[in-house]
Amino acid sequence: MAVVFERPKSLCDVRLHYCAGCTHGIIHRLVAEVIDEMGIEGTTVGVCPVGCSVFAYNYFNCDMIEAPHGRAPAVATGVKRARPDLNVFTYQGDGDLAAIGTAETVHAATRGENIAIIFVNNGTYGMTGGQMAPTTLPGQVTTTSPYGRNPKTAGYPVHVCEMLSTLDGTALAVRTAVDTVPHIREQRR
């Protein structure tokens, strides 16, 4: 029988820890498929965040570094500057990238660091149990905005792609969803 659907080579053959319904698995797969297609697994170094995807180093088959919370773009900068021959990506959630790591994100972008940042935005701090994130929508209920995010006291969500698009160093900033099959196919492109 012909095999029609395989695990990408760049993903390890292990069980993921993510909750049912979580899209990290889909996004891991998309990243791994792209690494496979480009044939760069052997020269790729990934940098993981603190957050739900903290264990991504166990899932991607390339060399992996675990960064402190929010610091992945700085760690990736160090890797790329020390070894320009390597392909470097970070994989970060919204708390990691748009709150505690805003400075690292903005400055890596404005320096035009030759790295790829995979930004996974679910609008909440998932790992710690659903607190308000920098991307939580106005009115959205979380454990630390139990009456809904009130912009008068908690401000507005950060528009990461729009913010980074204003910087001359950013090569590409795109935003897509992974909620439906057509969207997933679109993201893969």
Binding site: V47, I65, A74, V75, A76, T77, G78, V79, R81, E104
Partner: peptide, 11 residues
């Protein structure tokens, strides 16, 4: 953290 990244490559 850049030091962490650079040093992680053995440089």
């Amino acid at each position: 953290n850049m030091v962490l990244g650079g040093a992680a490559t053995g440089t």
